[in-house]
Each structure stands twice: as C-alpha cells, then as structure tokens.
Design a protein around this nucleic acid. Structure first.
Lengths: 337, 337
DNA sequence: TTAGTTTGTGAGAGCGTTTTCAGTTTTCGT
DNA sequence: ACGAAAACTGAAAACGCTCTCACAAACTAA
C-alpha cells in the first residue's frame, strides 16, 4: 500500500494525496474528505524512509549519554530525565533514538556512527564531562543541539540549573543553623556541575568567614558507597554537617554516621542534592536541594524541536529554579517518629 | 556527497561503489582499494534513509516499555536492563529507538505509531502486563519480537528467569533457617512475574506443610514506600520473616521494622529479589535472589537480531539462572559491623 | 580449441515519498 | 463582464541508495 494506490482509489494524483497527508492548503474540501476516508479505510501510513529521503530530514531526535555515567543512571537521575524527554517526544512527531555507551570503546563506536551518518535531526546531550569532544564535533557539523547541564561551549544551547547558587544556598542553610565544620562530598571532578557545586559550597563558607578546610572535602562518585566511605573519613575530623553533591551519597553518609553511633541531625546535619524519590521516605527524612529533573528533560526536548524547526536561534539558555526542601536531616525541623 | 560522486572520482559505476560498501564479493581487489581510499578520503557515509528505502528495512531496533512501569524504572532494574540492550546494539549495526510511555494516553499514542509505521525491524518488549495488547498486535503484523519476562503468548520468543523456582528457593531458604511466619510483599498483580513469584512463595510453604495465611501477603508496587507500609501491617501479626518481590520493597520493609524496634535478622529475617547495587552495601546487608538483569537485556537483543536475520526461527525461549545471594538479613551469617 | 563456468562491471529499474512547475479553474474587485 | 489573483491539480523530477540483469573478460576442463 503506497501513495500511488491511494491516489488510484481516490481518482486523484499522488501529489494530491501527499498534500492531504501533509495538510497543505490548496486541496478542495471534497477531495480532502474522499482521500482521508480512503486512507482511514485502508489503514494507510506513509513510508517513513521514503519521507526521510524526500524531505531530507529524519524526524528522529537523538538522546546521547556519554560513557562513564553509570552512577548517574543508577542514582535515579537518568530514568527521570529520560521520562521527561520521552514524554516530550511522544507529544511531537519525532521518534527517539537512544545512544548510551557503557565503555570507552562503545562510546567511541557510538560517536563515529553519530557523526558519520545523518541519523537524527538534532540531539539532546545529557551531562557533560569536561573534555568530551562530542558537543564540539556535533556543533561543527551544524547539528541542532541542546545540552542538559553545563558546558564550556558558549555556542550551544543548554537547559540547566544554577548549580553554584543552589550549592551555596544549601551550605548557607547549614551555616544559618549554626554549623561550622561543614564537610562536602563531591562527585567526579571531570563533571562540570560537580565543580560548580563545590564552588558554591566554598563561596558560602567564605561569605560567612568560615575557613575552607580541604580535608573536609572528599571526592565521591555519586554512589551510595562513596558517600558512606566519605563519612567515615570525616568523622575523626570532628564535623557537624555534611553537604553531599547528590542524595545517594548523602544516604550513604547517613549510613556511615549511624554506624558510628552519630545522630543525624543532632551530631551531624546532612543535606543532599536532587530530591530523589526516597529522600522523603528516609528516617530521618533528607533535607535536599531539589532540582526539576523531569522538566530539565522535557524543556530541553521542546527547545531542541524549536531549534530544529527554526523557531528559535541558538544558542539559547534556560536556567530552571531549584528549591531547598527542608526536612529532618538538617535539624531545622523537629524529628518525627 | 553521494554514491554517484564517489563513483565519478573512482572512475567506476555507482553499482560498484555500492558493492564495495556492502562487502559484496565480485569486486576486483584493485578497484576495491581505490574506492575504499576515496570513501575514506572524502569521509563519505551512505545515506541511511535511502538505504532503508532501497533495502526495505530500517536497521532499527525498537525497545518498548509499556506504561505504568515507573516503579521498575526507578528501582534500578530498568537502567541496568537498558545498559545490556544498549551495549548489545552498539556492537551491531543497528540503532536503538526507545519507546517509553508514562501515561496511558502517551502509551496509546505510542502504540499507534509503532503499529502504523514501519519504524523498526524488530522490537524488544520489556516486562509484561497481563492484558497488554501490544505483543499480540505486533505478532500479528509479523514484527520480529523478543520479550524480556514472561508472557501468556506462546508464539513469541522470550528471555526470562524462572520466577517461580527462584521465589521458591528464596522462601525455602527462610524455612530452612527455622522461620515459620513468613510474610510476602508482592508487586502489582497484573505483572505476570509478580504472580509467579507469589506462586513460588506459596509452593514453598505448602511443600513444608506450613499453612498459607492470606493475611501475610500484601500487595506493594515495587516502591520502597510500599515495602515500608507492608512491614508495618505485618508486625502486629507476629511474623518472623519477610520475602519481598524486589529489593526496594525489602529495604522499605527493613526501615519499617527498624522503626518499630525490631531487629533484622534476629526478630524478622528479610529476603529481597533482584540484587540491586545497594543490596550489598546496606546494614545489615540484604540477602536476595539475584537475577542477571544486564544479561537479560543483552541476550534478548542478540536473540532479536538473530531472529531478524533469520538465523533463528521463533518462538525461541531462554531461561537464565538466578542465584540466592546469602548475606546478613536472613540470619544465616553472623552480622558484621 | 571450445564450451562452460566463474568473476567483474555497468545500465537502469525500482524503493515511496515530496515538491517544483506549469496549467486549469474559480473567485473577486471594479 | 473582464482581467488579475487565488485556489486547485497533475506530471515529473528529485532524494540516494540496492539489486537484477545483461554482458564481457578471465578462467577451467575436456
């Protein structure tokens, strides 16, 4: 079943059927109805490949996650983000093509294919490793692009949160509650957002004339376990608060503290980042900086579609608000249960 | 840049260039080298749409997750599965198209598009809701298909674990350790695997002449919270063990138990299902039935590719082994820490 | 040598759309 | 009523490949 056959049945030309399908004006109402009816009756759908070829576009949006992000995947960030992207795409006429490498070798093979073939009309890039070459390569090939998260490339559009400000607010909150020995658990340093959060932490301390102590900063990797070990390292240093760069590490830190008989928040206050689902169901419930992950995904996708369709000219940048969700681990609220 | 231009440069016909690219025999070595060199030099890549159109196949594999599976997504199952699928695809010449609906409306729109257009050469379906109509519809349209998880359709290929046997082994383990009031937290009952695990639990009880008590079964939804509430419901009933249908609910249950001052495993033993990453880092560490999630994904993908290429004729079924990972929450091993 | 097979190559017919161009009919302002 | 403009329609040229078919050249076996 193809355009020609539908045209035959309707007694019109292929071109007219095409016009009806693509909602061109300049088709008489009578003809439109007749063609539509036949298309419906025959269950006809135009061939996607032929369309791509003729129109010189794929109607495909690529979603690309560079290698080495497994922790983010497992931490609950990725599925939520993907949900936002997927939802936005499903409400458009585009189709999602997902590219996620787990090893460097896979990523390499992936990049080659993405760059070589015209497989997508545009791409949403998730996160950004400092020396990732993909954004630049794609940009140079004039591929419409939106990054979720920060980048050093000023030419590309991004949807992001203000990591520095958010981290500063979180740290400030602890300072206001009287904490002075505030430790920080970071993520991998080659992730730009991680460094921004670190800067926010440091800025907050400085603004309050609290000396910055490098010993109170530990590099984690966004896993629960790394938070646990960071906490164990901090305990002998006499800390009274921990600000972790994501919730998972905050949870791990809480485990480490509990194991050493330290009470949260009485002995050590804890603040996380993300506000993942479990944060609110923990005991004590986790105070954390909420970022609108799902919205990050859906807004980036909508922006990309606008860029592809020329409704917006890049670079375009959107910063979504974050919100400090005050629960029990910071000690600002009396504990429940 | 297209085939024609490459042909010009090499002084051969379009057909010959095509043969070189597709590794057809019957191209002289000299010509092959010359063409290859020019392709390399020009950085030429054949147009995917034109290929699809000419070959009548897309080289795309669809990965489809029906609606209502958010809990699975968040529980860590989905990202790992996706990693396995993605890895397998990246080692092939296929491209992954991801279809995940979060609402019923999105799923409906998604199904329509999948069924209407020839957008993929085959599909991997994740999980199976009892009355999901998609597998049947796809099967009737002769779409190559592999399901991950159980299905009532005997015509489709699957990659799965033996849920019933696995649940029985887990329950048996608790019985052997002397537990008699063993509760079970299930997932949503319209997920086939959930019912199979329930059957395994019940079978184990019956085999040991332990009366089945419906009050000791609570329907959760795979979230940590639902495990927490289930545990609170069980406590007044005097239980001495809980077998949860996934790890997340087991963790929630442990939280509920701890909150009521019950010790795990001394008062109540706990066994989970999945062996997600955090299971081993908990305190006490979670005894759980490990299922090879990543392998489930990669094997299903390889099987699908074999089916698409006619190397295997469906239905083909593979059952992967599970393994009871004995840690601390079942009481079989002295606690650490 | 001769017929038959294998190897190598090009011409050209698809694959199923979109879109330009040209031509015809209808509408509209005066 | 008339010319210009707007509304419709179809023919046919792309889009960039694959693959069959025909044919030529190079082997092979007798």
């Amino acid at each position: 079943m193809n355009l020609e056959e539908i045209a035959q049945l309707a007694g019109v030309s292929r071109a007219t059927v095409s016009r009806v399908i693509n909602k061109h004006p300049y088709v008489s109402e009578a003809v439109r109805q007749r063609v539509l009816e036949i298309i419906e009756r025959e269950g006809f759908h135009p061939n996607a490949a032929a369309r791509m070829l003729a129109r010189q576009r794929t109607e495909v949006i690529g979603v690309i996650a560079p290698e080495g992000l497994e922790p983010i995947f497992l931490g609950g960030y990725f599925p939520v983000l993907l949900g936002g992207i997927s939802s936005a795409i499903s409400h458009s006429d585009y189709v999602m093509s997902l590219w996620a490498g787990s090893t460097a070798e896979e990523a390499q093979r992936m990049y080659k294919r993405i760059l070589g073939y015209k497989l997508m009309d545009g791409a949403v890039l998730i996160s950004s490793i400092q020396d990732d070459t993909l954004p630049r390569s794609l940009y140079e090939r004039r591929m419409p692009l939106v990054m979720i998260g920060p980048t050093i490339m000023s030419e590309v559009s991004t949807v992001d949160i203000d990591n520095l400000a958010a981290a500063r607010v979180a740290t400030d909150h602890l300072i206001r509650l009287g904490r002075r020995r505030i430790a920080h658990i970071t993520g991998r340093h080659d992730i730009i957002a991680v460094r921004q959060r670190f800067d926010g932490y440091r800025t907050a301390l400085e603004a309050s004339q609290i000396p910055f102590d490098p010993a109170l900063v530990d590099q984690g990797d966004f896993t629960e376990n790394s938070g646990y070990f960071a906490a164990r390292k901090f305990i002998p240093l006499g800390i009274d608060a921990i600000f972790a760069s994501n919730d998972l590490m905050a949870i791990g830190a809480m485990r480490g503290l509990a194991e050493q008989g330290l009470n949260v928040p009485d002995d050590v206050a804890v603040v996380g980042f993300d506000d993942m689902h479990t944060a609110s169901t923990l005991h004590p419930a986790l105070t954390t900086m909420r970022q609108p992950i799902r919205e990050l995904g859906s807004i980036a996708t909508h922006m990309l579609i606008d860029i592809i369709q020329g409704k917006v000219t890049p670079p375009h940048r959107i910063v979504l608000p974050t919100e400090l969700v005050i629960r029990e681990t910071c000690g600002a609220i009396p504990r429940s249960g």
